[in-house]
Structure formats: structure tokens, C-alpha cells
Design a protein around this nucleic acid. Structure first.
Length: 218
DNA sequence: CTCTTGATCTTCT
DNA sequence: GAAGATCAAGAGC
């Protein structure tokens, strides 16, 4: 493990200008495990509520610090033009994993939300590593912790998520999700790397995190 | 630091 | 054929 613990209480922002979520978790246990019911709400409620939650795959992972919301009414969503072999799981019930191939070489993981047929999902874009950092470094061939999970393709490589994980349920092994111990400071902004519906502010992040795929403006 | 490019799978035109 | 919810390496400033 390579968690840096704070020298001072994290509720003194003038001493720690940029507290990371791992610092907060060191002072509180993980929250309750998230069940399928957590995802059976609007994707626009679930997405910000996932910031600060802990995601583990086979015990490796960390704190979700960046996500994006997609919905079938959204031209940027894979589900916008209806079901295909790739996006089929998005049209199923909430609480399952949707994994797709990105640009032919990377995998990206999503949590299906809302209800059967609504075809909405949250893309996991960045994680603050806390569990199994040695395994992540090996898989990513990268030492710098900030480079392990700072992007959707990096997250899947570090957590060894691939198409084999597509359609897995989110509340049973090998996947584990835990609610955040308290509500963190969340920022929203426009999504990354898309060319349709670019203006929609459906990217959410932990304010001030060093582990984002890209800073939020302001 | 920013910008460009290649890698190469799935879907859509 | 072309585009895309990406990343890493290399060139240039």
C-alpha cells in the first residue's frame, strides 16, 4: 500500500489545500456496499453520487473521482440509435456492468442505471488508487500513481477489466462497490472526447483531486 | 508545456 | 470507407 496519510486533520483546509478522498477514508470506514437498488434511479442522480464511492475488482481499485453520464436520449450515448450486440446490456436492468472496446485497443467500463429499457449508464473515467497499487503498477507498466487510473482506458487496464466482465452484476464478486462515507465537494463540466452533444455538463468530479483524467476548468 | 499521430475494433453511412 | 465515450510516444516550443 502506498497511501499518504495526512499529518493534520483534513477538516483544516488551510493546512491541506487539496485533501484527497483517501485522506478522508483513512478517518472513516468504507460505507455500506452498494446494491442494484442504488443504480435504479436517474443516471443524473447516480453519476454525482458515485463520486467518492470505492470500486474494487478482485480487490484492486480505489475511490471513484470522475464519471460521465450517458442516456439513450443523448446523441453522444452508445444507446442513442437503439440496441446493438455491443450495447445490449445498457438496455437491460440497472446494476450491471457495460464494457466496450474503445478505439480498437482500450476497454471502458460503465454502470447501467435507471430501469430496463432506459439504456442509461455511467462511464467510470478516473479512480484514486487505494487497493492493490502494486498490481496496478504491474498491469499499467507505470510507477506514477497519478498515471494508473486517470482515464477510462487506464482504469480498465489497472483493474484488469475487459469484455469478459461485460454484463457482470455490480453487487457480487469479482466487483465490489462501497458508498462514500460522506458527501464530497463535487464539480460538473462538459464531457471529454465526444463530438456530439458536447455542451451537456454531465461530467462529474471530486473537486481538487490530483487523479482526474483532466482538470475541470475553474 | 502543447500538438500530432498511430494503434486497430465496432458501428454506421 | 469513416468515425469514435482513448492512450502513449515523439516533435516542437
Amino acid at each position: 500500500m502506498n497511501i499518504t496519510f495526512p499529518d493534520h486533520p483534513v477538516w483544516l483546509p488551510e493546512r491541506i489545500p487539496c485533501p484527497q478522498m483517501a485522506d478522508l477514508l483513512s478517518l472513516a470506514p468504507l460505507g455500506r456496499p452498494l446494491t442494484k437498488k442504488f443504480f435504479a434511479r436517474s443516471v443524473h442522480e447516480v453519476a454525482p453520487d458515485l463520486i467518492g464511492a470505492t470500486l474494487l475488482v478482485d480487490g484492486v481499485g480505489g475511490i471513484i473521482v470522475e464519471v460521465e453520464a450517458y442516456h439513450h436520449t443523448d446523441p453522444a450515448a452508445h444507446s442513442y440509435r437503439g440496441p446493438t450486440p455491443r450495447n445490449m446490456v445498457m438496455f437491460g436492468p440497472p446494476g450491471f456492468l457495460y464494457v466496450y472496446r474503445s478505439y480498437g485497443i482500450h476497454w471502458c467500463m460503465n454502470f447501467v442505471c435507471e430501469k430496463e429499457g432506459s439504456a442509461s449508464a455511467v462511464l467510470v473515467r478516473a479512480i484514486e488508487p487505494t487497493h492493490g497499487i502494486a498490481a496496478m503498477r504491474r498491469r499499467r507498466r507505470q510507477q506514477d500513481e497519478r498515471m494508473l487510473c486517470s482515464g477510462p482506458g487506464k482504469v480498465c487496464e489497472a483493474l484488469a477489466v475487459s469484455n469478459k466482465h461485460n454484463t457482470l452484476v455490480l453487487d457480487a464478486p469479482p466487483i465490489a462497490l462501497y458508498a462514500r462515507p460522506r458527501k464530497p465537494d463535487i464539480v460538473a463540466g462538459i464531457r471529454i472526447g465526444i463530438t456530439k452533444a458536447v455542451e451537456l455538463p454531465w461530467r462529474y468530479g471530486l473537486r481538487g483531486s490530483r487523479f482526474l483524467s483532466k482538470p475541470f476548468p475553474g
